[in-house]
Every structure is written in C-alpha cells, then in structure tokens.
Nucleic acid binder design. Structure first.
Lengths: 362, 362
DNA sequence: ATCGATGTCCAAAACGTTTTGGAAAGAGCC
DNA sequence: GGCTCTTTCCAAAACGTTTTGGACATCGAT
C-alpha cells in the first residue's frame, strides 16, 4: 500500500511543484491572461468561463503567488510596525492593547503586519530598508517624541504612514490620537472644582509627546483656575508600569496636604491605590482618585468602581483606526487625522460624595 | 529657486523610479549578473570590481527589491505568527514577553515576523494561505492544545515550524518548552516536604497543554508522597490574569485547612497575595507561597522577595529559541527540541523559616 | 454588404532579481 | 604553438504574476 500521501486538498502538481496559474491555464485550455482576469473579477471574461475558472482554481487548490503579485503590482499589501527594543517601552501592556486593534483591522482588510524591533540607534536603517526594498506599503509610528526623526524621514520619503499622536507637523501626515490635552485639562479642572487645593499628578514618560502634552494641560488648568503652580505636584514615571505608580504615590503621600491623585494610566492608578491603602487612607473618600483608563483587557477595575473618576478611551480602537488610515493612504491617497472619543466615568470625592463635573463626553 | 528636492541620500532615478540592479549595471558598465554576484559575495568576481560595485551601490542607494528576490529564490525570509483573536489569550502579558524574544532573534537573523490574528474557526485558512502563497518560510505555534489541528496541518504540509510546548507528536516537530512537569512536581514536593498537608493550586487554563501537564505533575507528586488526592485543591483560571488569581485565592481561603498556595503564574500570585493579605494572613509566614515566575518585565516582584518560592524561567529566551529553531529548519533542514532552563529561588515557609528543598536547578 | 459596437479571449511584455552554462583572456606548462 | 587551468565576466532563462494592446467573432443598425 504505497503511493502518494492522501491530502485533504490537492495543492501540488506531480513533482511536488505548487499549482501555478500556468497549470490552471493548461488544465482549462485557456490563456493565463483569462485565468488572471477571471480570478480578479474583470468584466472582459464571460460569466460561464469565470465560474468554471473559479471552480477549477478551488479544485486544484490554486493560490496566487504573493511575491509574484507584489513584484508586478509594486504593492506588498503589508504594513510595517517597527518597535524600539528598549525594555521599558516594549513590554508595556498598552502596546498589546493597540496591537490587538492593529491586527484585527489588518486581518479584515487583508493586509499583513510586519512587526520588528530594533534598537533606537539603528531604527532608521530599518525604516530605510523597508521603504526601498518594497516589502511594505506603509508604516505605523508609535509613541512619537518631539521632532521625531521617524516622522521626518517618512514625510521626506513620501510614503504612507500613520502616527499615534500629533505634533507640529500633524497637518501633513495621517494621525490617530486621543484628546490628551482636553482630557487632562478637564480632569485637573474637575479635581480643583471639587475643592482640592493640592494634588499629585503621576505622569508617564515626558520624553513622549502624550505625556508632555498631558503635563501642559494640567498646568494650564491650574493656572486658568487662578491657582499657583505648586497646586500640582507632577511626578514622572519613566515607564508607565505599575511599579512606578506605587513608588511615586508613596512619594506624594509624604506631603499630607495632597488630597487628590491624578494618574496618567490605570495601570499606575491601581498600584497607587494600593500604596494609598497601605498608608491607611481610603481611596475615593480620604483621597480623590482620577485616571486615564485605556481599557487594558487584563486589568480589572471593577473593585474600584465608583471610587475612581476615569476618562475611558480605547487603545484598541486607536489601533484599528491606524491601520484603516494607512490603507486609505495607500489606496485612495487621502491623508487624514482621527480623534478617538473619550468617555468620562465620574467617581466619588472626599467623604464619599459623588464628583461634580460638567464634562461628560469629549 | 526650483529644482529637485534635496535628499540625504539619492535613492531615486530620474522619473522617480527606484534604483534597480539594471541602473547600477548601466552606471558601472557591467552586466547585472556581475553586480548581483559581487553584492552577494560570490568568488567569481574580481576583488577590485567587487569593491567598486559595493561603493557604487552605496552611493546610488541601491537596495535589492525584496519581492523579486523572494520570487526567484522561493524563500521569503519571513516567519508567520498567527494569533487567535480570543480576548483571553491575546491580551495575555505573557505573550508580549515571548514576542520580545521572537522579535529580537528575528532582527538579528534578518528575518521578518508576519503577525496576524484570526478567529479560531478561520485560523486554518490563514495557515493554508501562508503556506501556499509563498509569503512565509515557516511558522511559530503558540499555546498548543491536545491534538492541535495547527500541528496536524503543518506536519502534513511538511513546512518548517516550531511549537511552544510538547505533545504526543513532539518527536516529529521542532519545539521549545520549559519543564512544566518537572517544575511543578518539584514545587508540589517542596510544599509537602515542608509540612503542608493541604494546599491550593491555582492553575492556568487547562485546555492548554502547559496547564494540564502542570496539574498532572502536582497530582503525581501528591500521590508519590503517599498523600490522598484531597491534599491539593486545584482551581482553574480560565485565563492567566491577575483577576483570576484574586478570586480563586479568595475561594481557596474559605478552606481554613489550606496552608500553602501554589500559583501557575506570578501574575496570579501577586493578586493572590493581595487576597491573602486582605484576609488578614501574612504571606510567607502564615501561608507558604510558591509560583512559576515567567520574568514578566513589568511585574515587580521585589517587594515579595524572600517570602515567595519561585521557579524562574525566561519566556523571552523561549521566544528567541523558537525563531532560531524555525530558521535552522529552513536553512539546514534539521529539526530539534530545546528545553529552556529553570531556576529555583527558595522563599520562606510557615512562621518565617526558610524553605527546605533539594531541587535548585532544573 | 458594410460599419461600428460589443463581448470574449489571448500573446507578449514587464516587474527585478538569481542562477545556469558558458565565453574570453591570460597564465603556466610541456 | 598548443594545451589545460584559472580568473573574470556575461547572455539568457527563470521565478509567477498583471497589464497592455490588440484579434476575432457576433450583432444591430445603416
């Protein structure tokens, strides 16, 4: 009992070769032109022939060779996402959340995501290579910094890309962003309006624009409310992890005048809350807690519900929007910005009464 | 003052075309054969010409078209990693840790990682497509289940792949794994040898092999030590997140006979410890805590140091080993398994004395 | 009958590489 | 001078598609 191995679908020609368009053309006694055009839905092939071609293609297990397609069409249907290989950034849980959105949208649009990591110094060479060797059609740029060289390069190269965030040049490129300024201005205002005269702001890494923007927003709010700059104690977490949230909160707790805590990330907020609890204070009543909530799937905020004021925004939605934007640029040539909506969930303030606030939706 | 835009490096020919090997050949008055062979380090081109070719290629900014190379060589230098789109699995922080290793190794070996997510039902179509359209050379298979259809398919297709874990067929494919059985057998034995007669085992999702193997190991250890099965209360976390660690520990705390807690993941352990603390017991003295430690970068275990027995193993190293294995299969045709080492860090037991144990390194 | 549309089909070129199978020139040897 | 061996180069084929620019009927209208 020897012979060819039984396979679910036959996908190989005799000799172990994969089925090509030529095999299909020979089998059907048609030209490869007709096969190609039938499969790609052109109108210049008869309805009956098209059906037969599609059927035969399925039967023989024909799948067009992606690299041949890419070579001739000059489009790869792939998007690059280059990560910096720095410990702090890369293992950030926020990243996974964005990625979930990126991958979902890519899958639905039949694009591939080419992911790579590279140490900062050599990152630009990776971008150059991808631009010039035709392996991707566009780029996703994450966590922009001021005057980000990646943006400079991509703008100059004239290649499609999207940035997760805005800076000076954001009218010239595609971006997806949350209203960092508006959200944190509103949060700081909320804190002050609820009677707090000194509060801590546990921020993210201010080398990144999202964090420096948030600091500016909080400081502006303090100033606009006619309070002195010392009203807010801003502490910078060099990476947005829980660890920093705990330590920085302990630092802030040393100042007994501080009655409210504003966090840049819910990940830091939960750790901060555990520091506050350990210090013998009750979050939500002894201290007002407010935070950005990026909807990290593995972070359970339910136990805190009601005791914390959150401005919720989906990083996953941002990921989806980014891929959609790059694809639009590739296929329609349009460039646009997308603001991801934020939703306010008000919690409780000092001695448990619920927070007053007018901003419910941004 | 009009004219061509100044560029750092000229990479385009007049007309905006990218520099091809033909342009380079024309410029140098050599054949494209010679250019190609010079650039690829063949010995049949003179040393002087090679130097000149390399210099000219750099000067003109020539980068070989990846898709043309792929078409003619029939190798893509890419590896696919298909994720299931299920919430629970995909947002697992352990995944990011593995990915860090995967990307680092891929970058060093000049391979691209093509990442995609797909709902379970349609996952196999994605695999089929990647196998047949030539877009990748091999696959990474994550979190295998018993009789995993992905393994069946890839084995049948005869394409390079590596699995993060072992099952019945693991002598026929490349794998990378930690000694789940050995580690958890040793941990359970340690718990029992230190005098505990009833303990909880907070396991991961037992639909996955790593978790069912761990359960088997723990149960075997209990039996081998001559104790009844009720000695261990195994609780299954449907996903290996903190949340489950908290809730399942609370469940186990209801049984006052339980004096030790064994966790499948440090992520669950920290949450469990917070539940134990909340219940008024002191981890490390009132209760023995033991756990697997996958070295998640964002998880700070320092505060627990000394009070928890950990078996440490790097998921990042596993990621690196996986990529290396797939590449070896592609380039050398060899298939092999790699066991990632584990290190025991002993903590303290009941009333604070340090844990007794003979297994220090697996 | 002729002409222009219309509906189907196809041969050949093109995409940018690598590889195969030599060719040409010189060196060394008898 | 003829022979082989090396060194250095190259023309042409091949990889598997898509696209261009027709060809060839058929059909209606003139």
């Amino acid at each position: 009992m020897s012979g060819p191995l039984p396979r679910g679908k036959k996908r190989l020609m005799s000799g172990g070769r994969k089925v090509t368009i030529k095999d299909l053309a020979a089998e059907m006694e048609l030209s490869i032109t007709t096969i190609s055009r039938a499969l790609n839905g052109y109108t210049d092939v008869g309805e009956e022939t098209r059906k037969k071609v599609v059927a035969a293609a399925r039967k023989m297990g024909y799948t067009p060779n992606r690299n041949a397609q890419r070579l001739v069409t000059q489009r790869s249907h792939s998007i690059a996402w280059v990560q910096s290989d720095d410990e702090s950034k890369f293992t950030d849980p926020h990243f996974v959340e964005v990625m979930a959105g990126v991958l979902r949208e890519a899958q639905q649009s039949h694009y591939d995501i080419v992911l790579s990591s590279e140490i900062s110094e050599r990152q630009m060479t990776t971008y150059e290579r991808y631009v010039h060797d035709g392996s991707v059609d566009g780029f996703i740029v994450d966590l922009p910094r001021p005057n980000d060289p990646r943006i400079t390069f991509l703008l100059d190269a004239g290649v499609p890309f999207v940035v997760h965030g805005r800076e000076e040049r954001s009218d010239r490129y595609g971006w997806v962003d949350v209203d960092n300024y508006g959200n944190f201005y509103a949060l700081a205002k909320l804190v002050i309006e609820n009677g707090h005269r000194k509060f801590a702001f546990i921020n993210g890494d201010e080398r990144f624009l999202y964090a420096s923007t948030r600091r500016r927003a909080v400081e502006d709010a303090v100033a606009d409310m006619g309070l002195p700059p010392e009203t807010v104690l801003t502490l910078e977490g060099t990476h947005p992890m829980g660890e920093a949230g705990f330590q920085l909160t302990e630092l802030a707790l040393a100042d007994r005048d501080i009655t409210a805590f504003l966090y840049s990330s819910a990940l830091m907020a939960v750790e901060g809350i555990s520091a506050i609890t350990r210090a013998g204070r009750k979050p939500g009543t002894d201290a007002l807690i407010a935070s950005m909530n990026d909807e990290l799937r593995y972070l359970n905020l339910a136990p805190l519900e009601g005791n914390i004021t959150l401005v919720r925004s989906s990083l996953r939605a941002a990921g989806q929007a980014m891929v959609a934007e790059v694809i639009r640029q590739c296929e329609r040539g349009t460039v646009s910005g997308t603001l991801i909506p934020s939703l306010f969930d008000l919690g409780t303030g000092v001695s448990g009464e619920s927070i007053k606030g007018d901003v419910l939706f941004v």
